[in-house]
Simulated assay, not measured.
Amino acid sequence: MIVRTLEECRNSERRVASETWESVRMLLKDDLMGFSFHITTIFKGTETHIHYKNHLESVYCMSGEGEIEVVGGETYPIKPGTLYILDKHDEHFLRAYEGADMVMACVFNPPITGQEIHDENGVYPLVD
Score class of each variant (00 low, 15 high):
S23M: 13
R10F: 10
D31N: 15
T40W: 02
E22P: 08
M33E: 15
E57R: 02
G72Y: 12
E57Q: 08
G72R: 12
S63K: 03
R10H: 09
V59D: 14
V71C: 10
I39W: 07
G34R: 11
E67Y: 10
K29R: 11
I42L: 13
T40V: 12
E7K: 14
S63T: 06
V71G: 09
H55F: 02
H55I: 03
D31H: 13
A17P: 05
R14I: 01
G34N: 14
D30G: 15
E67I: 10
E67T: 07
K29C: 12
T41M: 07
G72V: 08
M33Y: 12
A17G: 04
E47T: 14
T48L: 15
T40M: 11
F35I: 13
R10G: 00
G34C: 11
V59L: 15
S63Y: 02
S23C: 15
S23I: 12
L27K: 12
W21N: 10
I68N: 03
I50N: 01
I50K: 00
S23F: 04
G64T: 01
G73Q: 10
S63E: 14
R10W: 07
E74V: 01
V59Y: 09
L28Q: 13
F43M: 09
C9I: 00
G64P: 08
K44T: 10
S18Y: 08
G45M: 03
V71Y: 13
E67C: 08
G64E: 09
T20N: 12
S58Q: 15
I39N: 13
R25F: 03
E65H: 03
K53C: 05
E47M: 11
C9Q: 04
A17L: 11
V24W: 01
V16P: 05
M26V: 13
S63H: 02
V71H: 07
F37G: 14
E19R: 13
V16F: 01
E65N: 02
E69V: 00
K53T: 10
L27N: 11
E19C: 02
E19A: 15
K53Y: 09
C9Y: 00
M62P: 06
S58K: 04
H51R: 06
M62G: 07
E8Y: 00
C9N: 01
E47H: 06
I68A: 05
K29E: 15
K29M: 12
E19W: 00
L28W: 05
G72T: 10
T40I: 11
H38S: 15
L32G: 09
D31T: 03
T48I: 13
L28E: 11
S36V: 07
G64M: 04
A17Q: 10
M62T: 05
H49D: 07
H38Y: 06
S12W: 01
E47F: 00
S12A: 01
V59W: 08
Y60E: 10
G72H: 06
K29Q: 11
V16C: 06
H49L: 09
L56K: 02
F43W: 10
G64Y: 04
S12M: 01
C61R: 00
D31C: 09
E74L: 06
T46I: 05
L27W: 10
S23Q: 11
R10N: 05
T75P: 02
H38W: 13
V16N: 05
V71L: 14
H49V: 08
R10M: 09
W21S: 14
N54V: 03
I50L: 03
E69T: 07
E22V: 14
E74W: 09
W21L: 12
T46M: 08
I50S: 01
G73I: 09
T41F: 01
E57K: 04
L56P: 02
Y60H: 11
I50V: 14
